[in-house]
Amino acid sequence: MLGTSLATTDAKPAMVLDTKGLLCPAPVVKTSQAVKQIQVGDVLQVLATDPGSKPDLTSWSRMTGNELLSVTEDGGSPKVYTFLIRRMK
């Protein structure tokens, strides 16, 4: 299991969660609910426009022991953040 967590960061998501337009705490609360619906080792993709979602989902991943594989942001207005999170347990 740990072996898979060290693998590539361009993992294909098992599920996509769209929280665009929602504010804290929705991105974190919905992520915690969505991650329970995928298998351990699978990847969840989260889309968000809340500018707090980047530090918040980073903290959430650390607190829950899930692995934040990558965060990317586009140049749009509002900016859309894309997170790839691997369920670890």
Binding site: C24, P25, V28, V29, T31, S32, Q33, D56, S59, W60, M63, T64
Partner: peptide, 12 residues
């Protein structure tokens, strides 16, 4: 309420 739901979402 925001802290409560976020705390529960974070395993607290």
């Amino acid at each position: 309420m925001i802290l409560a739901t976020t705390g529960a979402a974070s395993g607290m």
